[in-house]
């Protein structure tokens, strides 16, 4: 009876993850330290998926709790569309970087860098959709990488208690404050990616304090 139940719940779990029980990376999923994560952030001209464009992609590699600085990726993209208003936030002027690659070149560089790593971002859906829209414009297939979102994961660290009022959304600023991470480079793609990476590590640590955590649980 009991065994049956466990087997059953296992299948349900795998169904939810959308993969078969004999998944080749199952082993991998249990060992967080072995996985290559790419923590990224994009600076964009605005928040509209169709009219706005990516100005810059900043990404860093995170593996085994280590971030090699020379393994980072930062690309500023040539612009046709440019919005004066958002320039105030990210400080990227239209002609700021001279030898900027075209959107297609930048995307190809990024895809090479990304490989099949797991993507981590804060409010991941925004960055991924922005990138996917750009890929689509350039006739490339959309990203198939697994993704994690620190905005979602952070909520898992919060105390389950009626005494604590949870918010629907936690900004990167709030995470930085909570985890005592410097906000000096906030609103640069690389700076935000770095804050996100450190926040991710601290979240992982918090979750581990309670229970041994596997990567698979993070995707739940």
């Amino acid at each position: 009876m009991m065994i049956n139940f466990i087997e059953k719940s296992k299948t349900i779990l795998f169904d939810l993850l959308g993969k078969s029980e004999k998944s080749s990376d199952e082993e991998l999923l249990n060992d967080i330290d072995a996985v290559r994560f790419v923590v990224l952030d994009t600076e964009t001209t605005g928040f509209d998926y169709t009219t706005d464009r990516i100005l810059c992609i900043g990404a860093i590699v995170l593996q085994n709790n280590t971030i090699p600085i020379n393994g980072s990726f930062e690309v500023y993209i040539q612009q046709e569309h440019y919005d004066q208003a958002t320039a105030k936030i990210h400080g990227i002027l239209k002609e700021f970087v001279i030898d900027r690659p075209t959107e297609l070149e930048a995307l190809q560089q990024f895809l090479d860098f990304l490989g099949d790593s797991i993507i981590i971002a804060h409010h991941t859906i925004f960055d991924i959709t922005m990138i996917n829209k750009a890929l689509e414009r350039n006739g490339l297939p959309e990203l198939k990488n697994k993704t994690l979102d620190t905005a979602v994961l952070y909520k898992k660290t919060l105390l389950v208690s009626n005494l604590l009022e949870r918010k629907e959304n936690y900004s990167l600023d709030e995470l930085a404050d909570k985890f005592d991470i410097s906000k000096k480079d906030r609103h640069t793609a690389m700076g935000d990616a770095y804050i996100t990476a450190i926040a991710f590590l601290k979240i992982l640590n918090k979750l581990r304090e309670r229970k041994e955590i596997t990567l698979r649980q993070l995707f739940k």
């Binding site: 900043g58 000096k184 640069t188």
Partner: peptide
């Protein structure tokens, strides 16, 4: 490569 993070470290 030179980037925002290496600046911050320096």
């Amino acid at each position: 490569m030179k980037n925002t993070i290496s600046h911050r470290v320096a």
